[in-house]
Simulated assay, not measured.
Amino acid sequence: MSSIPQSKDALEQAIRDAHAKLMSDYRAVPEHMTRKLSLEGNVKGTQISVCDTVAYLIGWGQLVLKWHTLTSQDLPVDFPDTGFKWNQLGLLAQHFQREYNEWQYAALLDELDTTTAQILALIAHLSDDQLYGESWYEAWTLGRMIQFNTSSPMKNIRTKVRRFKKGKGLR
């Protein structure tokens, strides 16, 4: 199978797989370590916590859902989000981190589970053609935009979390 999903089934499987593996790694990190600033941040030269990585994934997942809701109602969408341009993704990541800064680790993990389930439910209600048959945003299909903001960052963040766990002697 290609590493880039080209169909509804492949997209669902990529998200399920990436989410399951990442959640397994997240659950192996004790809560008392989840706010330590020791992972490479999205802005050059910054450090973030494990909790910040969860906030990042929730933020992007919620944006995907917001984009679909707005476009399905023929309402305009500010891509990537209101007040942010594509060249400001580091600032957007920091916005997500601030938005969820007070949340407990368990609540963040629950929210990531919920957000991922909502995205999978959205995909389940769409056809292959709706996901991959036409451009949805500029040159990108809806399926590709979903993948860019779900399974792809989950895989990238998992690498950071595994590096963190290894450095802390966690299994």
Rank of each mutant, 00 (worst) to 15 (best):
S38W: 10
A55P: 05
C51W: 01
S38L: 13
Y56Q: 05
S38A: 10
N42F: 13
E40C: 00
T46V: 02
T46G: 04
S49C: 02
Y26M: 10
S49Q: 02
K44L: 02
L22C: 08
A55D: 03
L37Y: 08
G59E: 07
Y26V: 04
N42Y: 08
M33W: 11
P30H: 06
K21V: 13
T34V: 14
E31S: 13
V29G: 11
I58G: 05
S24L: 12
S24F: 09
K21R: 11
G45W: 00
E31F: 14
W60A: 05
L22V: 07
C51Y: 02
L57I: 08
T34E: 08
K44P: 06
S24R: 11
W60F: 12
R27S: 14
R27H: 13
D52T: 01
G59P: 14
N42L: 09
E40W: 00
V43Y: 01
W60L: 09
E31M: 09
T46P: 12
I48N: 03
R35W: 12
K44H: 05
M23A: 05
K36C: 13
P30Q: 06
W60S: 08
M33V: 13
P30L: 06
E40M: 05
K36D: 15
V54W: 00
I48S: 00
K21C: 07
V43T: 11
T53P: 06
K36T: 15
K21N: 14
K36E: 15
V50R: 00
D25K: 09
K36A: 15
S24E: 14
S38G: 15
G41R: 00
H32W: 10
A28F: 04
I48R: 01
S24C: 10
P30N: 07
A55N: 04
L57R: 03
I58P: 12
M23Y: 07
Q47A: 06
G59W: 05
A20S: 07
A20V: 10
C51A: 12
M23P: 11
A55K: 00
S24Q: 14
